[in-house]
Amino acid sequence: MALKWWLSASALLSSMTILLVLGFLLQSSWPLIQQQGATFIVGTEWYPFESLYGMLPAFIGTVWSVTLALLIALPCGVAAAILCAELLPPRLRSTVRFAMELMAGVPSVVYGLLGMWLLLPLLESQLNLLTGRTLLAAGLLLALMILPTIMVLSEDAIRAVRQSQRETAKNLGIGWDATLWRVLLPQAWPGIRVATLLATGRAMGETVAVMLVVGSIDRIPEPFYNFLQPAQTLTSRIGREMAEASVGSLHWAALLFCGLMLATMAVAISLLTHRKVAAV
């Protein structure tokens, strides 16, 4: 009886966690929604002292940095996975893979340190920028962080393609190139898709590393595709300002709303992941 009680209680409690998290975030950011309606969500101005809490700049910053990271990390990561799964000798392969698994576990704050003291000076000197703290820096750093994840999961997916399929393609003599595009990648695609979605989630929610390099300036890049300007992401805003906001103030509520936006986006991504996996 005690056993059943323990099991049921822990199942109930741990599955409630997500609802509790979302609930508390909504409840704490409610004052802001009540006072300003939903308009602040698409507002472009964020000046806490004037009670302007436009979410758009940080949202765009988040989308931009994640997109940049994916644009870099996805081709490179999948190529590394292909190299590892198809072209390297088995012994080298397991070494490389193990190294990548370790890299995937490197704490994000270490990447932050790297970004701040290796990447920023490099960017400043190479691109002649006033400050290296830009969307580009955030994108590059995030790319470095999610690359091992994409590589390891994509490699799993590629290696899961049955050997008989490779051999049959070989028997038809269609060549390495066609085998890759017409046999391996289509079959590994569900796995690569999941890897990408997971990496997107991770890049989106990354805080300390991004906050050290993104510049934390609340404005939409001008023009909007200019990634050589300082910007702000949802996470870096929370990280920067949470300690300054007084408990219960509108500013506090606005920051919690940023958290709610992040959580909602994360839930959306995981629903997407889940649905796609189930559909395959």
Binding site: E206, L255, G259
Partner: peptide
């Protein structure tokens, strides 16, 4: 479904909570 969702939640959100 719950745990897949929970796994995707950014750590900072837990920090906020």
């Amino acid at each position: 479904a719950m745990f897949n969702m929970l796994q995707g939640i950014p750590p900072i959100v837990f920090g906020l909570c």
